Simulated assay, not measured.
Amino acid sequence: MQTNKIDFLKTYLSLYIDHTTVLAGMQEPDSAYVILDVRNAPAAIKKDQIKGAIAIPAKDLSQHLSALDQSKTYVVYDWTAGTTLGKVALLTLLSAGFNAFELSCALEGWKGMHLPIETL
């Protein structure tokens, strides 16, 4: 039984990437990371996003896959880690063969750590 729990947790945690890794990668020339803001809300409601993120709502992501670079690693985020849009977007990307993760701290955690954001 413990082995099943451990295997499940390893799989679950492999879906996420932490802010430290993303920040370090973003600072490299020709970064491998592309951050996607997958919140399904207009800019007037969002008000801000992670600096350099590309806004593609989770509900529209499947229609934009052909415009994405398969050689990049996509990091998706939603409002909080407990919401499902990031997971829906991650499933869409992984199912289409992309290398992708969900940001472990979501936007709420990113802003809480005072990491770079930009106003919309």
Score class of each variant (00 low, 15 high):
residue 1 M to N: 10
residue 1 M to W: 07
residue 2 Q to W: 07
residue 2 Q to P: 02
residue 3 T to Q: 14
residue 3 T to V: 11
residue 3 T to F: 09
residue 5 K to I: 09
residue 5 K to Y: 08
residue 6 I to R: 13
residue 6 I to D: 15
residue 6 I to H: 10
residue 8 F to G: 05
residue 8 F to R: 12
residue 8 F to P: 03
residue 9 L to E: 10
residue 9 L to F: 13
residue 18 D to G: 15
residue 19 H to T: 12
residue 19 H to Y: 13
residue 20 T to M: 11
residue 21 T to S: 15
residue 22 V to P: 07
residue 22 V to S: 10
residue 22 V to C: 12
residue 24 A to T: 14
residue 24 A to K: 15
residue 25 G to Q: 07
residue 25 G to T: 07
residue 26 M to R: 14
residue 27 Q to W: 00
residue 28 E to F: 00
residue 28 E to A: 14
residue 29 P to M: 05
residue 30 D to G: 06
residue 31 S to R: 08
residue 31 S to C: 09
residue 31 S to W: 09
residue 32 A to L: 10
residue 33 Y to V: 06
residue 33 Y to W: 12
residue 35 I to F: 13
residue 36 L to S: 05
residue 38 V to W: 01
residue 40 N to V: 11
residue 42 P to R: 09
residue 43 A to H: 12
residue 43 A to V: 14
residue 43 A to G: 04
residue 44 A to F: 11
residue 44 A to C: 06
residue 45 I to H: 12
residue 45 I to Y: 12
residue 48 D to L: 10
residue 48 D to G: 07
residue 49 Q to A: 14
residue 50 I to F: 09
residue 51 K to N: 11
residue 53 A to Q: 06
residue 56 I to V: 12
residue 57 P to H: 04
residue 60 D to V: 00
residue 61 L to F: 02
residue 62 S to T: 10
residue 63 Q to K: 05
residue 63 Q to W: 00
residue 63 Q to A: 05
residue 64 H to P: 01
residue 66 S to D: 13
residue 70 Q to Y: 01
residue 70 Q to V: 02
residue 71 S to V: 00
residue 71 S to D: 08
residue 76 V to T: 03
residue 77 Y to K: 03
residue 78 D to P: 02
residue 78 D to K: 04
residue 79 W to Y: 11
residue 80 T to G: 10
residue 81 A to W: 07
residue 82 G to M: 11
residue 85 L to Q: 15
residue 85 L to P: 02
residue 87 K to G: 14
residue 88 V to L: 09
residue 89 A to G: 10
residue 90 L to R: 07
residue 90 L to D: 05
residue 91 L to S: 14
residue 92 T to Y: 04
residue 93 L to P: 00
residue 93 L to D: 03
residue 93 L to G: 03
residue 93 L to Q: 06
residue 95 S to G: 13
residue 96 A to G: 09
residue 96 A to R: 07
residue 96 A to C: 08
residue 98 F to P: 01
residue 100 A to Q: 06
residue 101 F to N: 02
residue 101 F to C: 04
residue 102 E to H: 09
residue 103 L to Y: 05
residue 103 L to T: 04
residue 104 S to L: 11
residue 107 L to E: 10
residue 110 W to N: 01
residue 111 K to T: 15
residue 111 K to S: 08
residue 112 G to D: 11
residue 114 H to G: 04
residue 115 L to D: 07
residue 116 P to G: 04
residue 116 P to K: 06
residue 116 P to A: 03
residue 118 E to Q: 15
